[in-house]
Amino acid sequence: MRAKQVERCLNFCCETGRQLIKNGAEIYRVEEAAKRMLSAFGYSDAEVFAIPSCIIINIHDGERNFTKNVRILRTGSNFDRLDSLNALSRKVAAKELSIEAAEAELHEIMGRKGYPAWISYLGYGFAAFFFTLFWGGHALDAAIAFFCGLLVKAAMGQMVRLKANVFFIHICASMLLVTVPVLLTALGVHIIHTDKIVIGAIMLLVPGIAITNVMRDVIIGDFITAVSKLAEVLIIALAIAIGIAIPFGILRALTGVM
């Protein structure tokens, strides 16, 4: 019975940690949350080790050791869940919730629906729209950027579903969004500002969470995480750069001018 209780806490903490990482939490937050929750359950000497792709938790109970590790293969960014999971872990750490209630709440959070697809699309579109205005484009540029934003969302959604890797997703998405204004210019529409459109829309691809969390993990002293996240940032930046270069390169090869 006692062993069962330990396993239950272990499973709960692993799952909460995994979901925290998956939804954009810093790694130190995951480690701290798991430690505090286990301490609230009565296992104050538990060991928690987390990196962006894996969590290992060990609980020492009586004469036995219980260990579990979980892999995190794909990370996303759902700040609504992140906020709720963070609140849940605080409540558990403050001993306000029993393990049963905590499990039920975790289940409820994970079952919560995100924004409907059309609102997501509008979010992408308007972010690109206003960033183009922000960088000095005029209304027509912004309208084209809005379309590019929709395109990026559609491409990314589809490729994530097909389990493409991050590098390739970013190459294709940035290539697509650059192709639109380049094609229009090649067709003779010269009143648009290709640079403003591209800069406005490219903002959608910038790995903001990774950049921010790198610094926050460095501060804590978690350098393994920081190095692996930094690699992610650089690889994504490289992918975006390659994606920008391809359409321009093709246009240049075809027409000889830019």
Binding site: G24, Y115, L122, G125, F126, A127, A128, F129, F130, F134
Partner: peptide
């Protein structure tokens, strides 16, 4: 424009 663009980003990141 930054305010509005960031609101778009907030939706992209599923802030409710």
């Amino acid at each position: 424009y930054a305010l509005l663009a960031c609101a778009g980003f907030a939706v992209m990141f599923e802030i409710k």
